[in-house]
Simulated scan of single mutants.
Amino acid sequence: MLLNVPTLVAVDLYVVTLVGVLMAFAWHSGRRDPTLGYMSAMLLLAALSTLLIGLRSVGLIGVSIILGNMVMMLCCAMLWTSMRVFAGRSPHWPGIGAGALVWLLLCLWPAFYQSMPARIMVNSAATSLYCLLAAFELWRSRRQLEVSLRPTLVLLLFHASFYSVRLFLDRGTPFAIPDGPGATFFAVLVFETMLIAVGLAFTTLTMVRDRAELKLRSAALSDPLTGIGNRRAFMESGERLLRLCAERDETVALLVCDLDNFKRLNDAFGHPAGDQALMEFSRITASRMRRQDVFGRIGGEEFACLLAEAGTEAACQVAERIRREFAELPFIADGMLSVSIGVATSAEAGHDLARLLALADQALYLAKSRGRNRIERSTPRPGAEGRSRG
């Protein structure tokens, strides 16, 4: 079945323009992610290049060959830029304009301008190169992006491969021989480009949405001052770690840490000093945590650390390093920084987070009552509950 080229061009122009306008609306009215702005520019430039290249059928050959393909190069550059920006890098303006500039300079060479095979080769090579660059931007940042990149990568690589194959199949006769093989391939080219444009718009919007949701979830689970997990994050991650350790029959230790005399510190030196103390304690403690451990701020000046595969002795060693390093920090006044730590393990409480917290809380209360700036181990007593401390 032959595809009608003029009809396909008209449909392509309408669909790509519509998707480009909708993408611009999504960027302007909602997420404000620059990735959507560059993707919108790519789609609208694609529509413009289709219109300009189509002017060849009405005799405007120079406009079609020179201006139409320059716009197409800019379109491909915007595709690369949108993926580059999504990966967290800034636009590379020389690279954006390089393709269009090279095309213009080549068209000043009569031998190139008059050779359809040469123009097809350069156009196809440039399109494939920009697609591969876009795929590379995503691939090298795949661990940091934390969203599904596979659909976009597949589309980019397919588009690059398609334009590589074009070098061998496109004879460059889209209008001169309506029923010839060149016309058939040109129709397929228009159809493929339209589908890829729509597909990339959809997958890019999905990636932007998924990343925005991840950021919102991260904000909901992190403490805004210290940047570590909040109480909700600690409880969720702690429960997961305890289930895993219970399945493996591994001992887990919990440290509950409370900064000493925190209210007096705030009263004497102001809230900025208190905030600084909280941030410094978070930094020191986080540096002592392993990847599998869970650390969070569970109250105003209270923190908890869940240590995987750790018994009482190992937990007390970690707690002592934290206590000593925090107390030795240079601060506004000597002796103002100290922390009391209560330690409990699953050997006493089982793999039950609520029970571990209760036992560690008892030990923390004991550390406070014995003079602060010390570590105490839990001594479980039936029916005992944690008490308040200062």
Rank of each mutant, 00 (worst) to 15 (best):
G97E: 08
A100C: 14
A100V: 01
L101S: 12
L101N: 02
L101G: 15
L101H: 07
V102Y: 02
V102T: 05
V102W: 11
W103I: 08
W103D: 01
L104H: 01
L105E: 11
L106F: 13
L106H: 04
L106P: 07
L108D: 10
W109P: 01
W109D: 12
W109C: 12
P110H: 11
P110M: 07
P110K: 04
A111P: 14
Y113P: 00
Q114W: 15
Q114D: 13
S115D: 06
S115H: 05
S115R: 08
M116D: 11
M116C: 10
P117N: 05
A118I: 02
A118T: 01
I120T: 01
I120Y: 10
I120V: 13
M121K: 02
M121G: 13
V122F: 15
V122A: 10
N123A: 14
N123C: 12
N123F: 10
N123K: 07
N123P: 05
S124T: 13
S124A: 15
S124Y: 09
A125C: 12
T127K: 11
T127Q: 05
T127E: 10
S128I: 03
Y130I: 00
C131W: 02
C131T: 02
C131K: 02
L132S: 03
L132K: 08
L132Q: 05
L132N: 04
L132Y: 03
L133D: 01
A134R: 04
A134V: 06
A134P: 00
A134E: 00
A135K: 05
A135Y: 02
A135I: 01
F136Q: 09
E137I: 00
L138A: 04
L138H: 04
W139M: 11
W139K: 10
W139A: 08
R140D: 07
R140F: 11
R140S: 02
R140N: 09
S141K: 09
R142S: 11
R142Q: 06
R143G: 05
R143H: 14
R143I: 09
L145W: 05
E146T: 05
E146F: 03
V147Y: 03
V147I: 11
V147Q: 02
V147P: 07
V147N: 03
S148L: 14
S148V: 14
L149W: 00
L149K: 03
L149V: 01
L149M: 06
L149N: 00
R150W: 15
R150K: 15
P151C: 03
P151T: 06
P151G: 03
L153V: 05
V154Q: 07
V154A: 05
V154K: 04
V154S: 03
L155T: 00
L155A: 05
L155E: 02
L156W: 03
L156C: 04
L156T: 02
L157S: 11
L157I: 10
L157E: 06
F158S: 01
F158Q: 08
F158K: 04
H159T: 06
H159M: 09
A160Y: 00
A160M: 03
F162G: 08
F162T: 10
Y163C: 12
Y163G: 04
S164W: 12
S164E: 14
V165N: 12
V165R: 15
V165I: 15
F168T: 14
L169H: 15
D170I: 05
R171H: 14
T173S: 15
T173G: 12
T173K: 14
T173N: 12
P174V: 06
P174N: 06
P174S: 09
